[in-house]
Design a protein around this nucleic acid. Sequence first.
DNA 1: AGCACGCCGACT
DNA 2: GTCGGCGTGCTC
Length: 619
Amino acid sequence: MNNKYIAVIFNLPIEKPFWYRVPPEFKNEVKIGQRVLAPFGKREMVGFIVEKSEKKPRGRLKEIIRVFDKFPPLDNNLFSLAKWMSEYYCCSLGQALHSLFPFPYPYLEDLPPEIGLSDGKDEDKENIYLVQPGDKKFELVSSFIADNRKLEKQAIILVPEINLITGFEEKIKKIEKRTISFHSKLSIKERYKRWLMMKKAEVNVAIGTRSVIFAPFPKLGLIVVDQEESTDYKQKETPKYNVRQIAIKRGKMEKFSVFLISDAPSLESWYQAKKKVYKSFNFSRRRKGSFFEVVDLKKEKKKDRIFSRLLQDKIKDALEKKLSVMLFVSRRGYASFLLCSDCGEVIRCPNCNIGLSFHLKREMICHYCGFRTVAPSVCPFCGGRNLKKIGWGTQRVENEVKKRFPGARVKRFDLDIFKSSTYLIPDYIKKREVDILVGTQLLIKEDILSLVGVVGVMLVDVLLNLPDFRASERTFQLLTRIRKGSRGKNSVIVQTYNPTHYVLNAKSNEDFYSRELKIRKQLGYPPYQRWVRILIEGKRKDQVKDKSEEILNKIKKEGFNFLGPSPCPLSKIKGSYRYHIILRDTKGKNMQEFIREINPLARRSSIKIGIDVDPLSTM
DNA sequence: AGCACGCCGACT
DNA sequence: GTCGGCGTGCTC
């Protein structure tokens, strides 16, 4: 037995394993894939055993402190998945393994030895399906689950956020009692308990947010990704993986079906379906007429450019009929920024290169770093006294609504009021405690939308014109969600200065997607080219620029296709200057391989280099 | 990723 | 004189 020395990898951005001596009492316990506690510099860390040896490796070795598991916690399938993740998303294997199994040691019991083996063989065939469910979503998912159950296999259902779990779980439990939820709000102990239940196949369905994708079922037969286009599926920390992508990979590796479900799919999935790489099913009903009523604000009188005549009429009408109204505003706060009409300067955040939002009580707040200050009464640049509030946030709309509809009960719903728990909102409406809801994205939930009679999108231009290549896609998806949520029975009024925009004129999904795909193709944007975004950040602008140039030269040498370097649309956040380079997939050297080569560059200065494979946003 | 060490500028 | 910024290198 080669159990004298072991190589261990940690949750660090270091590929290299570290060697340790195994004390005699642990000799019979160490196996590759198990976790150990080991001294590391001044601290103790948990790592995975990746190699064993009888010969003493070079250098001075420390002894491991303890062995955690009686059996490797991750089976071969999950281990291979971690390997793939580290390669695809450019992180160390240690970091990938940590994503798959993030439980800190004090809460862990040992795994019993009889579990953890997966036969790895499967007779089923990629199959990836893109499903536009219309109003048949639960019906469809239930039938997938029932079919899978007949095969005596387990299933994972992914939803974008915690609030959506319970509703789904209740419906699925009618088909399959042995269903559990899994998400990050559970205590570590509870999560581990449920993890073990999945590992032992004591449950057949796990429904949850991101982390449930790594459910350790021994015979996984199905993954359902609900609202597959959701940006919540993208992990914000390294490794910045997309759960949808991982679901697809798991399906391919373990040879089972993956169902991507969406009423307004991501461009990526739509494109794969169009190429017939994914099979596609559309259950949504044909729409009659347009998606929504579009109001051209240019044609309104100046006093009606916040509330168009049409929107006012619809609100009045709804109030008379005792129906609730929702007004969607894309920003919280009162005004987007303060502009001096004498010198043209804008009051900016000292840490971030963006305007400070003007809030009630003359508070100026940075929405990126949280910086707060009192609004100046004179312009700090020229001393002028004509500071103008530009743009309409939720607070300002709320004020205006109260003025215009004095009898109505108005309530504001945004991050300043609701941290993110929106589950109470439907009650407000049902109990008729509110007539007009003014709020941000928080309100765009099916259970809320289904209870209102009129939805007004105050100024869709703010979304359409975000400096991000997915602005159109995001806006289309938002509008689709609004239309779908209100079940087609409500009025949806979209106010804009650009009524001819193709997002607003799409008569069907095909209409929008074919148009958007054309643009993406012309410009070399995803899904036609795979992107890797290299984000270069640092306190000093000259250094950030220099580092960008250094990386650029390497990119040119390799002959890669690229964009930039350029300052990010959010060019300075929390005191750090931000530049980025977009690597675009070209035949030849693999982008991820290249990233691994430039990674050491990151550590040679105070510059931080972040890697985002398949970025969802380039702000 | 942490953390320590070592080199410079700007203060009691 | 030394406090503290950050650039550099190491962790078995």
